[in-house]
Design a protein around this nucleic acid. Structure first.
Lengths: 200, 200
DNA sequence: TTATTCAATGAACATCGTTCAAACCAAAAG
DNA sequence: CTTTTGGTTTGAACGATGTTCATTGAATAA
């Protein structure tokens, strides 16, 4: 019996994540409703709380998937041009990031909208995945300037990632501007070529 | 009577913004409660809706103040060093931005957390103030490279502002990293000197 | 003084996340 | 086969939330 329960729980868990993911993709993370979830999943509201003790946990689970896909997209984008000079690789990665965000703005935005109650800590995989993403960026950067120590590389990595993130974030913020895609690409290219010039 | 009413409304309006501002500063914009507001303002909940037809409107009013203070801080910071070379002025402005955000993280964050219902448009002053902020940045940038046309300057301005914003945003995101202040300053300086090098 | 007008009031409403006593089910025990 | 038992699933109920609107009340006009 215990086995059966575990299986059903796991199935329900996956189903819930599927439904929540679709909902966030289409209507944004603020549109998640327990009751709507329960109806679509064909279970009672209480059953959801057997799997996710709080709603933010479900959000976090969706974010886990999103993060994984993001990492994959960036990785495959850069691996297809492994021989290109460091700057070009940085640009490829940054534009993969941009494209990912533009393709699924709601899911991407949800990554930064996790409700932060006092008790819920940041999961380990969150920080691990993030540092992996940083590691991918650090590669070309240290190639660009082999004389820079690890501390300096870390600083530049964070600065660069944050900058690209800022461009994407404000660029996709419909209410402020609504910058067309090709201009965002131009900004990123300008940013990264400047970076490269400043780091050689 | 009409005069009296108008006056009382205006007073209540100011009082509400005061209270909401203090609340957001201390507990974040998500902690705003109509009932708590009414109690502190000494009025009924309904009275609030005579002044702000929806809660997001009050948020927006607080943001208006915040934006004004932000603009002032950046402007006075740079005007105190009007003779410095363009790069230095950019750094001064960016660090004023950083310091402003770090001093009042909740109020600053609230600028980007406005609930966006379909009907509520972005107020005019929002875009106007933003373009004013952009204009301040554009100055040093076009000094740095007089050959760049207005379109190119606009692109660089947005890219630079967004980049600084990204560094501050992710740096203050406690849950991801919690980057110490001096490292954020170092990132900004690195970013802007690279920018300058790439633009000359 | 009386009538009129409009703002202020706060109980009521709809909706949200969350809880928990009761119903239920499947396996073990009698 | 029937009964007991342990755990899960259920959905009504709870406490908060933003928002509304019939009622109250006070100030002006007649």
């Amino acid at each position: 019996m215990a086995r059966d329960t575990k299986k059903r729980r796991a199935e329900l868990r996956e189903r819930l994540i599927d439904i929540a993911e679709a909902q966030i993709r289409e209507e944004g993370s603020a549109s998640l409703r327990v009751r709507a979830l329960a109806e679509k999943a064909g279970c009672a509201v209480g059953a959801i709380y057997n799997v996710f003790s709080e709603m933010p946990g479900l959000q976090l689970a969706v974010n886990g998937r999103t993060f994984a896909r993001l990492g994959q997209r960036v990785t495959t984008a850069v691996s297809s041009r492994a021989e290109a000079p460091p700057v070009e690789r940085l640009i490829v990665m940054a534009e993969a990031y941009l494209k990912f965000a533009a393709d699924d703005p709601n899911l991407w935005r949800a990554l930064f909208e996790v409700e932060m109650t006092a008790d819920s800590e940041v999961p380990d995989w969150y920080l691990k995945d993030l540092s992996q993403l940083f590691a991918i960026i650090a590669g070309p950067l240290s190639e660009l300037d082999p004389s820079a120590g690890p501390d300096e590389i870390d600083l530049r990595t964070r600065a660069l990632f944050s900058s690209v993130h800022g461009i994407v974030f404000l660029g996709l913020e419909r209410r402020i501007s609504g910058v067309p895609m090709h201009r965002m690409e131009a900004m990123i290219e300008y940013l990264l070529r400047s970076f490269a010039k400043g780091s050689e």
